[in-house]
Nucleic acid binder design. Structure first.
Lengths: 354, 354
DNA sequence: TTCGATTGCGTGCTCGAACACTTTTTTAAA
DNA sequence: TTTAAAAAAGTGTTCGAGCACGCAATCGAA
């Protein structure tokens, strides 16, 4: 069986018309007699015509200026990976005329976010990828971008009541349940389990609460809430101090502390404490393959990390924009990335992209 | 900063010659004066010319007939996924003229493998993807294909002393270590750990032994070989019987059996036994997301599965061939796919492809 | 010098889709 | 019936790389 590629010309011939007319039908560009239009549409369906993307993009040669509004990786190394993902996607899509302008803000400064968001508006990109870590500050901009007709993709932080082209990231609830499952598997005897929100402004981070919900409900669902006592704490401290004081206190209150679930990428802070105090039997699960975490994962102090695949988030974010703008594909409103479970033995595979 | 794409014409102009000459230099298609050649090469380097793949493949329009030598998914559902991966890759690459012919053999019959392998030779494909599950029978063909100049990619089963274009699959040794790590995390007290090779001809499956090595060495490396007693057994039985007799026997010998590691996709057989005998405390880890395994994973009888990503193996196998044949990229000799850890809570994400 | 052969190099067509431009047909008004 | 305007349909160029073809210059032999 031969696979024949259907060209516009083939359709034209079969419809006894010219490729120009077929082209007008395909692109709804002006004035074709109704009977001809219908005939052509029927033939398109019949022959199952699919435009040749290669020829298409060779011709169109259009430039797509995408913008990425994303935190500074120098201030929080977590953001290095999304940057890398962006660049990987840009490399692949350069052939199609994609260019990405980065607008980098300070992840600790709302005002820098606002300033950069305004810059984005001035630039008027064809599409936008944004990590909306400042919920309240970001809200007004969504409306503005929508009015300007700039499609935007959110990643890392899911936001309700906003209609992006797509959200890319993890299912926080599931993510919490998964952490619970892992820790429960490793827990040998009844005791206290701590959910630790480390150095994060909870009021601006709904997803951490969602993670906690998922975590707690795992224990409830498994009828284990009698066996294990799940407590949660916000643990905030200046960089130079460490969480020692707070953790000491918690251990004093709950001598049967058996596991800690850190809801963001700061598990290494807790790991340092556990190591210092030789608490080998307290299980520890956290997020993200940043260097500090890898260090304690290799030492066996952090047992498992859940990978949020930040590289993939950047990569797929740009690809979704390209799928929408260039390839005119339908985009799912949510793209959940896998919840990868990482431990010392499979760490390597998740460090470098495919 | 504008990103200017360098064309052959640009090079020609700068070198004060014609695009035909530049083309001859680029493709070593003879007869260019030495001074001109050098001038052109210098300019190509200077301008950092990269051929426009889009235009390239539009023009070349070549057909690439790839062959896939792969077991029948109707006899072992594990093979459904590689088939799906093949098809996904074919869809993506159809634009580039790729067509895949499947040569499907019976995974229980060496002679059917040989027959199909001979068919492949008659077909004379441009490239070949093969799951060499019959080591001895496959060997002579590798040489033949090499002589015919057909590049071949191996997947699923790694074979030494053969020089494929690439091997795609898992690092079996690591995979064993990972299984050990997981089980050890869940083991609460000293006892016996069973490595089970279920219904598989060990003599033709070196990779199962490698898995076992990785598994055992984890316990040795962690200085746990005193605490845990690792034993291994080949458990073979006819389909209609089940492993009950053998497992009963093992439990009689080792009443302290705490965990089972099944080295292939047959964990569900052991799971059925555990369920029947209400052995909730025996931890179980196996491979592959086939339906039977998913069933017991959801019931919580299988604790974790390691995903060999069979879909990805098919997908990347075809892509590696395409990278070599069409895009002339350098191919790594080994592409290890990630060792994904799957449990009930993150199963979904690994079922459907990206 | 003339002819043929070889080497070196330039021209122009091709791929399929996009789109500007031209030509033909239809419709409405004079 | 003529004519202009509007609608419909057709033609031809373009994108960048590949490659066939053919022209021009050079060389060697007669």
């Amino acid at each position: 069986m031969k696979k024949k590629i259907v060209r516009i010309k083939d359709i034209a011939e079969k419809a006894q018309t010219s490729k120009g007319t077929v082209d007008r039908v395909l692109h709804n560009r002006g004035r074709v007699a109704d009977d001809v239009r219908e005939r052509i549409l029927a033939i398109i369906k019949e022959l199952n015509y699919e435009p040749n993307l290669i020829a298409q993009s060779l011709k169109s040669q259009r430039a797509f200026n995408l913008a990425a509004l994303i935190p500074d990786p120098n201030l929080d190394s977590y953001w290095e990976a999304p940057h890398a993902g962006l660049e990987k996607a840009e490399k692949e899509l350069r052939q199609y005329g994609v260019h990405i302008s980065k607008f980098i803000f300070n992840s600790h400064s709302e005002s820098s976010f606002i300033a950069k968001a305004k810059e984005v508006i001035r630039e008027h990109p064809d599409g936008l990828l944004i990590a909306p870590i400042f919920y309240k500050e970001a809200l007004p901009f969504f409306k503005e971008w929508a009015d300007m007709g700039i499609p935007y993709v959110l990643f890392n932080t899911q936001i309700e009541h906003v209609a992006p082209l797509c959200y890319i990231g993890q299912d926080s609830y599931r993510s919490g349940s998964l952490a619970a499952k892992i820790l429960r598997f490793g827990l040998h005897s009844p005791g206290t389990v701590l959910v630790a929100h480390v150095n994060e402004d909870i009021s601006n981070s709904a997803h951490l609460i969602t993670k906690e919900d998922g975590f707690r409900n795992y224990f409830k669902g498994e009828k284990l809430d009698g066996t294990f006592n799940v407590i949660s704490r916000e643990i905030n401290f200046p960089d130079e101090e460490g969480p020692d004081k707070q953790l000491d206190e918690i251990r004093a209150q709950h001598p049967d502390l058996g596991a800690v679930y850190v809801t963001n990428s700061k598990a290494f802070e807790v790991a340092a404490y556990l190591e210092k105090n030789a608490l080998k039997d307290i299980k520890l699960v956290g997020y993200d393959l940043i260097e500090h975490n890898q260090h304690y994962l290799n030492k066996g102090i952090i047992d498992f990390l859940i990978n949020q695949n930040p590289l993939g988030q950047g990569y797929w974010g740009i690809h979704q924009l390209a799928n929408h703008l260039i390839f005119k594909k339908e985009i799912p409103a949510i793209k959940f990335l896998p919840l990868d479970i990482i431990t010392r033995e499979n760490l390597d595979y998740y460090l470098d992209p495919q």
